[in-house]
Computed example of a mutant assay.
Amino acid sequence: MSMPSADTPLYNHPLPELESWLRERGCQQDRQELNHWWLEKSNWKAQLWLDTDQITVVYDVDGSEREIQRSFKYSLSRQDVEDAVFGGP
């Protein structure tokens, strides 16, 4: 099975493809809570949840005491979500 084009809404991606996409971007899946993912970059960290109707991302920026939470509906294209999530807070 090949990944749908980047302009395809996330709701048209099979779950195994979405999980593969997250792994390719450096995310690690929580072994206990399978819809929970982690990502670490040089100056920020993020936790991602694959919820029923959206991806929820909570960013932890180094040196900051506050978290930034964002949600992205599955109706957005994979490219739009990729740009927003992996671009950082």
Rank of each mutant, 00 (worst) to 15 (best):
I68D: 03
T8H: 06
S5T: 14
S2T: 15
S20T: 15
D7Y: 10
L15T: 11
H36S: 06
L22W: 08
W37Q: 05
G88D: 04
V85N: 02
Q28W: 07
D62R: 08
W38P: 04
D83V: 05
R66M: 04
L18C: 04
G88S: 02
Q79N: 10
D30P: 05
L48T: 08
L39W: 03
G63V: 01
Q32C: 12
Q29K: 13
A84W: 00
D53K: 09
E19T: 12
N12W: 13
K45V: 01
Y74W: 03
Y59W: 07
D80F: 09
A6L: 14
L15H: 10
D30F: 08
N12I: 04
E65N: 11
L22R: 06
S71Y: 00
Q47T: 14
G26F: 00
I68M: 05
W21L: 09
M1T: 15
P9E: 03
D53W: 07
L39Y: 09
P4N: 06
W38Y: 15
F86P: 04
I55H: 03
D83E: 11
R25F: 03
W49I: 03
L15I: 14
Y74I: 00
S42A: 11
S77Q: 04
H13C: 10
Q79S: 14
G26V: 01
Q29I: 08
V57M: 07
L10Y: 05
S42G: 03
D51A: 13
M3F: 13
C27H: 03
P14R: 15
E33F: 15
P4S: 07
D30T: 06
R23Q: 12
S77C: 09
P16F: 08
L50D: 05
V57N: 04
D60R: 00
R70P: 00
W44P: 01
F86H: 06
E67A: 10
S42Q: 10
Q32I: 14
Y74F: 14
V57Q: 05
L34R: 14
Q28E: 15
L10F: 12
Y11R: 10
W44I: 04
N35F: 10
Y11M: 07
Y11N: 10
W21C: 06
K73R: 11
C27L: 07
S64V: 05
R23W: 01
V61P: 00
E19I: 09
K41T: 02
